[in-house]
Nucleic acid binder design. Structure first.
Length: 105
DNA sequence: TCTGTGACGAGCG
DNA sequence: ACGCTCGCCACAG
């Protein structure tokens, strides 16, 4: 069965968001990391898509998701300050110190 | 069906 | 370290 079937269903969206809920405060996870957690490796962009509309589904710690380089989202300006409030520190280059703050889930 | 786009990732010069 | 290219998957038009 693969006929006109949507992949990004509301159910999948909540699956992604609940995975994001498990990221402990003071830590960050990458899009690819979350994608693997839900059994969809290589679908990091799907995670980003859901996060872009996360506000529609409720309140989730979407600020704890950065890209593989530790870069915060361009369109999400509050992300850095929210992370810093939790104790996540940034390097001189403006990236999260992934060595110390990446979540190992 | 083809094409462009995106809160991505990995490689390379 | 930085920017470019390519690969990736789902979706909209």
């Amino acid at each position: 069965m693969q006929n006109g079937r949507k992949v990004l269903t509301e159910e999948l969206a909540f699956e992604i968001l609940s995975a994001i809920e498990e990221i402990p405060p003071g830590c960050v996870a990458t899009y690819g990391q979350i994608a693997r957690l839900i059994g969809r490796p290589g679908n990091a962009r799907l995670v980003g898509r859901v996060l872009s509309m996360a506000e529609f589904f409720g309140s989730y710690p979407c600020h704890r998701v950065v890209n593989s380089q530790g870069r915060t989202a361009f369109t999400f300006t509050e992300q850095r300050s929210r992370l810093e409030e939790e104790g996540v520190r940034f390097l001189e280059n403006g990236k999260v110190d992934m060595k110390h703050f990446r979540w190992d889930g």
